[in-house]
Simulated scan of single mutants.
Amino acid sequence: MGLGNFFRKQLSQVIEWNNQNAALLVYKFPSANDEIKNSSKLIVAPGQGVILVYEGKIADHITENGIYDIESDNHPFITTLLKLRTNFESEHKLKIYFYRTSENVNLGWGTSQAIKYMDPVYKIPVELGANGSFSFKAGNPLFLFENIIGSRDSYTVEEAKQLLQSRFPQAISSILAKSLISYQEIDSQLPNLAVNIKESLNTEAENLGLVLTDFKVNGTIFDEGTKARIEKIADITTDTFAAKEGGLTYVELEKLKALRDAARNEGGLAGAGLQLGVGMELGKTFNDAKEEQLNSTDTDVVTKLKQLKLLLTEGIITQEEFDSKKKEWLDKF
């Protein structure tokens, strides 16, 4: 060490987090051997707070902006010149940590794993991904410093973001289960869900010394298995409505479809090891069921025509059968 540098080291200094890096949540002021000299000036700018660790213990926590005088046992010249046996290093260590008090805003998030819950209406398992944005800040800086950051010289916004985001899937899954919202209503309920999820997440965030100031869910996407289940429900719903319009129940319509397919699938019946007579019996059963529907007398003509159209659409009767019965019923009408 040159003589000039040696003497400069003994002088009081101005301590500040100049040109604050927006990517950092916590920043330790760099000082040789952590020897902050007595009468140094500490500047705390807007959007900043300061934690002072003196001789291994938190000595002060400054949250108000302004200029502060630093008083320590590190007096210029005396503490260093008398420390020949410790290589001119003082044991009176003062570490100064700046932290960001302003919000970290509009950070994107997305779930890295599927969120799972049981649909309360259709009783099917649902798996989905979600994405959105959130904002946060240091809620309890001392707790964050002591329990999360420790003795590190810096802690980034990205690290805090990842720590918070790891809590998102469980909170979202829990809120979806408690809210009893069907998959059909999720998109329309996103604002309300976001409010409840934020409240739940802040319980977790407080345990980290952080606080969410904003949370939004922008969209969701179902996994392929859930999409298949939803499509099946949609098909059943459509068929149920169509059957009702045609004067049939869903069960009656499905029974006719099953008999139709079985009667047509002679190869399938043979492949299954069934006797030909069984296939013929199924065909007879299908024809009997079809005739029962066509010749039913307990419904009016309009309803019977709707039913006739449904049977044609589903391939249960042929176009010729449709035209014949239609003419027969219209003649009676």
Rank of each mutant, 00 (worst) to 15 (best):
A262F: 04
I78R: 04
P46K: 06
F333A: 15
E252S: 04
N295A: 03
L24S: 12
K9T: 08
D239A: 13
K57Q: 06
V44K: 07
N147L: 08
G150V: 06
Y183W: 14
I70F: 05
A45D: 07
K37Q: 08
M1K: 11
N38S: 12
F241D: 10
K123P: 00
V251H: 12
K227R: 12
L248M: 14
K244Q: 14
T156R: 13
R100G: 05
F143Q: 14
A243F: 04
L82A: 14
K9C: 11
I221V: 15
G129K: 09
D239L: 13
A258S: 05
A289R: 02
V217H: 01
G283S: 00
A114K: 13
L259C: 03
A130L: 02
G110W: 07
F98R: 02
L208W: 03
S200N: 10
N21L: 12
G315M: 00
K326T: 13
D214W: 01
Y117Q: 05
E321G: 00
P125L: 07
R260F: 04
L128S: 03
I62E: 05
K332G: 02
E281F: 11
M280V: 03
L25T: 08
A177Q: 14
A32P: 10
E71A: 13
L269Q: 11
N18Y: 13
T303V: 01
T111V: 08
K332V: 14
G277K: 08
D223M: 10
K306R: 15
A59W: 15
F136E: 01
A258Y: 07
N147K: 13
T213M: 00
I316P: 00
S112D: 14
R8F: 13
D239I: 07
K232I: 09
Q184G: 00
I15W: 05
K257L: 12
F77N: 06
G225T: 07
I186C: 11
N87Y: 05
I149K: 10
L210G: 01
A114E: 15
N202H: 01
L248I: 01
T213G: 04
N218C: 01
N131V: 05
L269E: 00
I124V: 15
Q10Y: 02
G108L: 10
A289K: 08
P169E: 02
N65C: 13
D69T: 14
L142G: 01
K257E: 03
L3D: 10
E328A: 15
A130T: 05
L42I: 06
K227I: 11
K37P: 03
L308P: 11
F134D: 00
A171W: 04
P120L: 07
L212W: 02
V211D: 03
I317D: 00
F136R: 01
N202K: 02
K227S: 07
G315Q: 00
S40T: 03
L164I: 02
G110Y: 12
I124T: 11
N218F: 10
L176Y: 06
R152W: 09
I230E: 09
A23C: 10
A242G: 01
D119A: 07
S90P: 04
S188K: 10
G277W: 01
W109H: 05
D69V: 13
R229H: 06
E245R: 11
E252C: 02
R260C: 03
G110C: 09
G129V: 08
L164R: 04
V50G: 09
A138L: 15
N74H: 05
Y68R: 03
F29L: 10
K284V: 06
G150D: 09
A194Y: 02
